[in-house]
Design a protein around this nucleic acid. Structure first.
Lengths: 343, 343
DNA sequence: CTGTTAGCGCCTTCAT
DNA sequence: ATGAAGGCGCTAACAG
């Protein structure tokens, strides 16, 4: 089976030097062949390639990185790989990486600033060419020396602080506007807002936009209908009963992120209210629910591609000023948001 | 803001040598402090730490890896990061990696053997300590030299070929048995089987188990009810009409993987059959559908933790024979599988 | 406890 | 077109 020593005992991997000896050429000639540099005669090329094959030689990237200074590595730091939004980002980055001969390191923060810092420091020790991240900590100042040294930083979903970086952000305000306009158009006025912890940038932008949109429609916000917290099954259950089990219950819910939406759906499944729901962020199977989920969808792919675009532009010019790109969002109507208020 | 040169122009990163000079000590002393080796006086430690801080020194992991031979890197090669099963795997590996000071590289194959090979070769050039993969290619022989050299390979979901590796597999036969038993118990006999491409190991195991289970119940398999193909929206639509639009339609569907199930649900949403459905693999929001999805759930977490366990055991002993662990699966009853056949 | 020397595997520079 | 020497940044193996 196995071409080499049939998984024998601990063989060392052959080095370029050994290949050179085997082929009867100088080290540098092997290097030339491996790197496909010009000016090697066909004969020597053949000899070297034969030796490479016989020895099962594979170049040691650590050594190459050390010598060249560039690593061909992209670091991605996100909350969670299971979130469809970040999964799309990861997929897009991986695709680009392979097409450019790079490799992707992934680190997860779980929205914990300390973990973000740990992961990032672990990563920068590996000298990635670029870092793509969804920051959660208050400052990313600790990355400054590496930005100075040429590492390209692009953030997605949220901006960075304390460093010069590009950012790709969703049009949070526009999305909330569309959602509120839609619900008001159906006749709703008691619209509850269920959002994430205000530590998170998007959560802050969205709740501000909610208040602004309500004001625009001259609807006074009932503070008892505004709930900002981490989306746990239990917490959302309590929140739902807070906004629905009261004399003047909310007639519509605006859920401001996908994890909250999933828990809201779980919570509503155990109740018999007929309440409208619009979600900021779509769910993977949102079209299969009944009613279908009316959602403001962010295009994760567009955002990911934008981030990669910014990164490739920044790579050759690492010290240019940071740019921010806002990506539009789109309201998708499927049923849950078109439930009218009880008349 | 920025502690360092305020994102000035392209500064080189300081090296250990420069730190040593600044602190007035030898290179090796800095190395000792950085690596928290014993036998450094508190005074020198303080001096060195001060110099590190002033210069914003961070160790260069490439150099360290080259010197030490170990890289503190785990490579993960899977079909798609967006698949909840593989997302769980990625999450578990990342968690372990951070706790052990390692870093995770992720590569995606999209079930393409060539991409698998490319990605793996790119990765092994980086000399990961371990490789965790869901193989798709016929052989992973090309990894043999690196396995010989001590790289620990653990596969998940499917076994490897041509190399010595550990494997974590789901109890595919047991899961199919449970599904068929359940459907037969409801009175179904015309049970269609919708599976994935037979290139995939699990697809093969599952269809074999389907035939065996049917035989056990003395039900002759109608070959027109067995469909194996890549799960595309269009393809599944055609398949559904093939098994349902006929004089003696299937009364139950066994969908043999999560992507197929998602497309089956989409397809059924556009039809008005009342057909039972059991899925091998659960969906993230399977509990929110109506009826809820009856599914044979693999525990991605258990499988991931098992893989990590095998990996950590293999790491110090890379040449031990490969082990295979089967992880049990569990039928979760939620409604879709309890629809009786038309009487 | 501290420092010196050598070399990990490769690429860059310069010679031939 | 080919090769020899030097060094990327760090740590292992020895001195002192």
């Amino acid at each position: 089976m196995s071409v080499s020593g049939v998984n024998g005992t601990g063989q060392r991997r052959p080095t370029m030097k050994e290949v050179a000896a085997r082929a009867g050429v100088a080290l540098k000639t092997v290097s030339r062949v491996v790197n496909e540099e010009p000016n090697v005669s066909p004969e020597l090329t053949a000899k070297v390639q034969a030796a490479i094959k016989e020895l099962n030689y594979t170049p040691n990237e650590s050594a190459r990185m050390l010598r060249r200074g560039r690593t061909g590595t992209i670091a991605v730091v996100i909350r969670d790989i299971g979130d469809p939004f970040f999964a799309s980002l990861g997929r897009a980055v991986e695709l680009w990486a392979r097409s450019s001969g790079s490799v992707v390191m992934i680190g997860l923060t779980d929205e914990d600033p300390e973990r973000e810092r740990d992961v990032c420091l672990e990563f920068v020790a590996r000298r990635p060419d670029a870092l793509i991240m969804a920051p959660i900590g208050e400052t990313q100042e600790y990355l400054a020396p590496h930005v100075d040294a040429g590492m390209a930083v692009v953030t997605i979903d949220r901006p960075a602080h304390g460093i010069e970086a590009d950012a790709v952000l969703a049009d949070n305000a526009g999305g909330i506007d569309q959602a509120i306009d839609h619900l008001v158009r159906q006749g709703h006025r008691r619209i509850a807002y269920l959002g994430d912890d205000e530590r998170i940038f998007t959560a802050r932008e969205r709740v501000v936009a909610y208040r602004a949109a309500m004001a625009r429609h001259r609807i006074e916000v009932d503070e008892d209908l505004v709930h900002l917290s981490e989306p746990t099954t239990e917490g959302i259950g309590i929140t739902l009963s807070a906004v629905l089990d009261r004399p003047d219950p909310a007639t519509a819910l605006l859920s401001a992120n996908n994890m909250t939406t999933a828990e809201v759906l779980r919570g509503l499944a155990g109740r018999r209210d007929r309440v409208a729901l619009v979600s900021f962020d779509d769910l993977q199977l949102g079209d299969l629910l009944s009613p279908g989920l009316t959602a403001v969808a962010q295009s994760a792919d567009v955002m990911a591609r934008t981030a990669i675009q910014l990164m490739t532009e920044r790579l050759p010019e690492p010290h240019r000023p940071g740019r921010t790109v806002r990506v539009p969002v789109k309201l998708t109507i499927r049923g849950s948001g078109e439930i009218p208020p009880p008349s």
